[in-house]
Design a protein around this nucleic acid. Structure first.
Lengths: 336, 336
DNA sequence: TTGTAAGCGTTATCAT
DNA sequence: ATGATAACGCTTACAA
């Protein structure tokens, strides 16, 4: 209730109050060895009485550690962040960081300004490590991070320059499972709405689709590109429908595009799944809500956020770590 | 390409190279007055040659400013963050912060552990200010922030203890517009699926609904509570349908719940909007994707993120600021 | 086990 | 305009 921001006690004051040296107090604070039981108690009491809380900035300066990690999200659309995908990644990352005393600083490297800001962040060592999400093939972020020399782990594999550390989802496997499902349904004129082929996700899901079709002794019936949002999925579906009017199934590389496809199919008077079966990828909320609900490939996004963070922590701890691929699984709903 | 993290030059080294005192170098760095043109040039050259970048931690220690602001999101479900809503807020906040050199640290105060972490953040002054989102009525965060004495602005009004600074959306007005629309459509047996009444959003939208209905000389035909997610909306719709089988319109306090309602209505064989008109609130992506697409109240979420951040910056700059209410507007689609 | 003292890299004060 | 010098608050050799 007192508005005056009373100056907070320093470690020196704690030490004085406890009648010990500052170094002793510091040792207690970081529960380091070499301090007698008596002194330890005295210091702890003083800390409690004074309500001392260590100044993280001072500590950071002394230890040369920022006490924070960055989550940088690249891409050209600021609204990329409105995608529930990132929310889940953030949620996963947070739950892991909660166990530590690292903060999470969030960076959208979407504008030119944003990019220089991230560069600043890295060059000034304002963070101890970086998680990089959603990089495109030619993304300059990858280089910036490499140059910074900071520990970095990738969420999703970048297209080029295989990084040492990344966590990814089994995109190809998921796409294969989705397509296999379509085949098992007896469909044979299967088209795909794939994502940008300058991303690993885009490519891998495309590859999985191709492999599955090939293994069945068939060939893709058609393919059109989208860029992972609903509108592009609708456009792609329209194109496919005119090019291959008799298609009987579509594998969309993500749920948003699948939703767009659903919309177009509906307008075109095709019934789903009777006339054409549709399966998506991601298992975002939209999959449950769309009509008909989407059969889709679930990917553990929150787990991705967790693992990518865990990996970074391991790196910071100097441990040896290996890349990680998270499994996906098919969720059957109404659309296929 | 050299993996060795070469030690970065300090301001002292810059000063030495430029042949000036450290204080002069510091002045140049912060382009302060009282430094001759010649020296200024020399220092700037030295900075460039050495590739000097100031150490933000040291600066923070000296200036007693963290150089970061926190966005804390409260609530009990970590997945609250998967809601596209927050993504948009974050996007808005980021675009504003890009113009400054403040970082954004993100905090989910969802678990007990998370709460203490936020408390740490505040007590240790690891940030210069705070944006608080989505507080429930009894949320302990509000108290923690107040006690911390840090500048704080609320996104959405908390239920109790009117804060000095907040940015909110015109929830009551939006709800009124939505309900007016339903009335204009000739509906008279209008029910509402409202949000939690221990939040201001929940209450305000409910109030707007009530006011509109009353102004038309009617009374609410029914009401059921949800908690802003799809499932709860479905459950509420089911309850309402059995209690008031002849209802002809529903105002859902957000799009997720409206989507749930749509699902149930569809299953119950009611056609939308012919039999029952539905309008939601938020204008999230789901509104466009659902079937039929949702007539809903658009709220400028990204603008909310921007304004809340701007307000905090103004506060940090010592400016006087007043609360802000952002307008909403009805978006007509298929469901009503 | 304990304490002294030297950093960590800036900014800020105060003579000059 | 300029440059010592003292903060800022903590960690960490090193010595005792």
């Amino acid at each position: 209730m007192d508005g005056t921001a009373r100056r907070r006690p320093t470690l020196d004051e704690v030490a004085e109050r406890a009648g010990v040296s500052r170094s002793a107090a510091s040792r207690v604070l970081n529960n380091a060895p070499h301090v007698s039981r008596a002194k330890r108690d005295a210091v702890q009491r003083a800390i409690a009485e004074l309500g001392f809380v260590p100044n993280p900035t001072a500590r950071a300066l002394a230890t040369q550690q920022a006490g924070a990690v960055a989550l940088v999200v690249s891409g050209d659309d600021p609204m990329i962040f409105a995608d529930p995908f990132f929310g889940q990644v953030v949620a996963g990352a947070t739950t892991v960081l909660e166990e530590t005393d690292l903060h999470l600083v969030l960076c959208l490297a979407t504008s030119a300004r944003g990019q220089t800001r991230v560069q600043q962040l890295l060059r000034t060592r304002a963070v101890d490590g970086v998680v990089l999400m959603a990089l495109r093939g030619d993304d300059p972020m990858a280089r910036l991070v490499r140059e910074s020399g900071l520990p970095a782990v990738f969420g999703g594999r970048p297209l080029e320059g295989e990084p040492s550390w990344y966590v990814d989802v089994d995109n190809a496997g998921g796409a294969r499972a989705a397509t296999d499902h379509l085949l098992a349904l007896g469909r044979s004129r299967i088209v795909t709405i794939h994502g940008p082929l300058d991303t690993d996700v885009g490519r891998s899901r495309m590859r999985g689709f191709r492999e599955s079709v090939a293994l069945a002794g068939l060939t893709p019936y058609g393919a059109a590109a989208g860029d992972f949002n609903e509108r592009s999925g609708a456009a792609a579906m329209e194109a496919l429908l005119t090019r291959h009017p008799d298609l009987d199934a579509v594998f969309a590389a993500n749920d948003n595009m699948a939703a767009g496809a659903l919309r177009v199919l509906h307008r075109a008077g095709r019934s789903v799944p009777a006339d054409v079966a549709v399966v998506g990828f991601d298992d975002l909320p939209v999959a449950e809500v769309s009509h008909p609900s989407l059969t889709t490939v679930h990917q553990p996004i929150q787990a991705l956020g967790r693992e990518v963070t865990r990996m970074l922590l391991a790196l910071l701890a100097g441990e040896r770590v290996d890349p990680l691929i998270l499994p996906t699984r098919l969720i059957r709903r109404e659309s296929a």
